[in-house]
Design a protein around this nucleic acid. Structure first.
Lengths: 139, 139
DNA sequence: CTGGATCGTTGGTGATACCAACGATATACC
DNA sequence: GGTATATCGTTGGTATCACCAACGATCCAG
């Protein structure tokens, strides 16, 4: 596609192009499953944290609270998660992943595995490991 | 911010997080200059290609034609580029970077340099070189 | 009891990326 | 010359992720 010399070796440019390609593949794969990135992120957090308030979900995933609301509306509508009032604090809901949600999440993990393989196809095993290490260091 | 174990070592996840951080810094830096990513991309392409049609700009930058129109409206409005009818083909405009545009582009290059340094700060020189090489290979 | 903080919700915006449709123009072919 | 197909620039639209503001309800410390 683009071949602008001015940016060809700029790390931020290369990062954005690589990310764009990866996200496009991932978005397509998720779309085929009827979900988006935010859905996956919330399900993953619920699976890992156990029942949590919406604000906890927002903090643990980095997704804005208002986007947690909208995404969770979908998940609850699909019966992948449940929302109950918190008996301890009336301001809160407690969100729980359902068995359906857990199953669905496992399916999405498999989708993710395929996308990793597709995105990283051109790299050697050593390069993949180096990429992961370096990107993690950028965190 | 987020610490989801499920995705912690997924290359696509690490890539999206690293990119998000880089783009946030870049967007802020560009915003302080009154431009966006697309503006920079079009200016860079004009500088490199010389006068070009809008469709050529779209193809060389990967920016959709309709987004080229909107972005170019800004650039022309700021007198960073000029749009003239192509005498050879009445369907086309020929777009040219202005002297103001060239000067502005040089300023944005400096901004980009600073952002690279900020984004890549945590890495050693060797790691930076490896990152560039690997990301370029993903292209 | 008051002030400040937190929660969930509603509503909004922006950047990037992408798509559809249309009138004007160009070109190859019959 | 006419027709079919392609290209151009424009207008209009959508989606996703990311982020922000405001508000009523609730909680808690002083």
């Amino acid at each position: 596609m683009t071949s602008l010399q001015r940016v060809a070796n700029r790390p931020t440019w290369l990062l954005s192009r690589a990310n764009a390609r990866a996200q496009a593949l991932l978005a397509d794969a998720f779309a085929a499953e009827g979900v988006r990135g935010y859905h996956f992120r919330l399900l993953a957090a619920l699976d890992e944290l156990g029942p949590a308030s919406q604000a906890e979900l927002a903090r643990s995933t980095g997704v804005d609270r208002s986007d947690v609301v909208a995404t969770l509306d979908d998940l609850v509508g699909w019966r992948l998660a449940r929302r109950d009032p918190d008996p301890v604090d009336r301001r809160r809901n407690i969100v729980t992943i359902t068995a359906r949600g857990t199953t669905r999440l496992a399916g999405l993990d498999a989708v993710l595995d395929e996308v990793q393989a597709a995105v990283l196809g051109p790299l050697t095993a050593g390069e993949r490991a180096a990429l992961v290490r370096i990107l993690a260091k950028l965190g």
